[in-house]
């Protein structure tokens, strides 16, 4: 499916870049099995492609050690692979996913065994944005891009700065980040991402019906969203991570020069090097 001049990109044609959480530590302990999850998601991908012939899907696997593009509907080799009784989309994607997981495991072995990583959300967001930028620069006619994060594992506070930067660049290029959070607690990162970029954040209460949630909430293109009443977020967790210990904090110190956030008083800003004076309250203590 290479772009032909006959193609007419109407305002309801979407480019959906999906970040798929493949954190093995999360899935192996989570109540909802990964196989179930992936079958719902595959059905959802299929329905997106069926909605319009011009719709495009790019899937990025988000692992603990790496991220990788595992599927791109525009470069899909249409010939079916060995698996019978399964659409080419599914088999190709699963094939790539398997390869990715193996590679991710290899990468993980090189590292210290004790470190349990959260999924590299920042990495997959950056990859998604890069892909979208390429689409933007391909010409004046392109599908409407959006990012969907299918995330389950909890936030890695150490990625705070990187994730926030990705969010802001998405905001700048008016790419909404939708998030469907599977995990038990809400994700502050994704809440903020959707809030800032004008996307939808939703945490399905009933995972058995994940496909239906996906198709009812996240399948709608940007143009149609104006006519729908999509679930509103109840609240956004705006807490930040401190730059010094990467902990999520309610209250902290902010550098008056570069706005870096710290959980405790420092002599000097580690980001910009400004020297802080003794604060009034600290002097009193």
């Amino acid at each position: 499916m290479t772009s032909a001049p006959s193609k007419l990109y109407a305002d309801d044609v979407s480019l959906l870049v999906v970040s798929l959480d493949t954190n093995p530590f999360f899935w192996s302990t989570f109540s909802f099995p990964f196989s179930e999850f992936i079958s719902h998601v595959l059905a959802f991908f299929n329905s997106i492609l069926l909605l319009s012939q011009l719709n495009q899907i790019v899937v990025i696997a988000t692992g603990c050690n790496s991220c990788s593009y595992i599927y791109d509907s525009s470069s899909d080799s249409n010939h079916s692979s060995e698996a019978v009784g399964m659409p080419a989309l599914y088999s190709n994607l699963l094939q790539k996913l398997e390869e990715f997981v193996a590679k991710d495991e290899q990468l993980g072995k090189a590292q210290t065994p004790g470190a349990i990583a959260s999924s590299l959300l920042s990495g997959s967001l950056s990859m998604a944005l890069c892909y979208i930028q390429r689409i933007f620069r391909s010409g004046p006619l392109h599908p409407q891009p959006r990012i969907l994060c299918l995330q389950g594992s909890p936030d890695g506070p150490e990625q705070y700065v990187a994730v926030m930067n990705a969010i802001f660049s998405a905001q700048r290029s008016t790419v909404p980040i939708d998030s469907c959070f599977i995990g038990s607690n809400n994700s502050a990162f994704l809440q903020q991402a959707s809030y800032i970029t004008g996307g939808i954040y939703y945490r399905p209460p009933q995972l058995d019906g994940l496909f239906q949630y996906l198709s009812m909430v996240f399948a709608t293109d940007l143009h149609s969203r104006a006519f729908l009443r999509l679930p509103k977020s109840v609240g956004v967790d705006f807490r930040a991570s401190c730059f010094c210990h990467k902990q999520t904090i309610d209250m902290g110190y902010v550098c008056s020069v570069c706005l870096s956030i710290f959980c405790e008083h420092h002599q000097k800003c580690s980001t910009c090097g400004s020297v802080f004076g003794q604060s009034q309250s600290a002097a009193n203590l």
Binding site: T22, P24, W27, F34, E98, V101, A102
Partner: peptide
Amino acid sequence: AYGFLKVSI
């Protein structure tokens, strides 16, 4: 963990 994921796939 990775084994579990592979089995699921």
